[in-house]
Structure formats: C-alpha cells, structure tokens
C-alpha cells in the first residue's frame, strides 16, 4: 500500500523551469532524509524525464509527492504531458534507442536510477511517466 503524504504540482514548459524544478525535488528529498546518492539519482532521473518532456511534448505538468509504504518513505514524481505519445514503449525502453539526436539512454538509463518506474502512453494524446525512489531501496 502506497500512501501519499504531501502533494506539490509544478508546470514545466520552458528550459528555464528545469533548474527550479530540480531544486524543488531536492528540497523534498532532503526533507525525508534521503541519502545523498539516492537524492542524486532521483534528481538526475527527474532531469532526464523533464528534458524528454520538453523536447518531445513542449513540456507538461509535474507532481512531487512524499509517499509512504509501511516503514519506508519515498518520493514519487509524476510527469504528465499532452505530447504526441510513444507508439512503441518496449522499443523506447531499449538501451541505445532514440528518435531525437540525443545519446539514446534517456528512458532505460532513467529506469536504472530509481526504485520504481512506470510509463503509460496514448499515441496522439500524451505520455505519463511515474517514478518512485524509496529511502531504503
């Protein structure tokens, strides 16, 4: 059972929004006393997804939540965009795949950084990515 404790919504529609957004994620991670490596992984993952969102969907809405499961606490980030969507998710999750001219390690790399990773997409109406980082893995 995952219980959300707090909820914060941030709009990311410009490149300048990325740094403040990362700052906010860090604030919450510090608040629940996440270790430095955990924080760094979470923020890096968030940064990757937000950049993808800006590049392919011109931005979207992000939600930061503190969640709890039993004795463990964590941060859940949701990225919601109204972009073109991803037609073939398994293909997008493969190492080295990219439609843009990036390094192609966005999604699979991001998945390796966090405890839980979920992606839902409807071609033509948008993509929702949810990640969770638990303090104790």
């Amino acid at each position: 059972m995952i219980l959300p404790l707090t909820k914060d919504t941030i709009q990311v529609y410009r490149e300048q929004d990325v740094v403040p957004f990362r700052g906010r994620v860090k604030e919450y991670a510090v608040k629940i006393k996440m270790g430095l490596v955990g924080q760094t992984k979470l923020i890096t993952a968030a940064s990757e997804i937000v950049r993808n969102m800006l590049k392919y969907a011109n931005g979207g809405e992000t939600t930061i939540e503190i969640v709890s499961r039993g004795r463990d606490n964590g941060i859940r980030l949701t990225f919601d965009d109204k972009g073109p969507g991803i037609a073939d998710i398994p293909l997008a999750m493969k190492d080295g795949f990219s439609t843009g001219r990036s390094l192609g390690l966005g999604l699979p790399g991001t998945k390796r950084l966090v405890s839980e990773f979920d992606i839902k997409s409807e071609p033509g109406s948008g993509t929702t990515v949810t990640i969770i980082m638990w303090i104790n893995g």
């Binding site: 430095l36 992984k41 390690l105």
Partner: peptide, 14 residues
C-alpha cells in the same frame, strides 16, 4: 567529480 555523481553516471550508462 562527486562520488554520488559518479555512481549516478555509471548507473545511467553515460
């Protein structure tokens, strides 16, 4: 480079 950054980059595959 900070240790946490190095660990993250390795995990990311960069």
């Amino acid at each position: 480079m900070q240790p946490a950054v190095a660990i993250t980059l390795v995990e990311l595959g960069l």
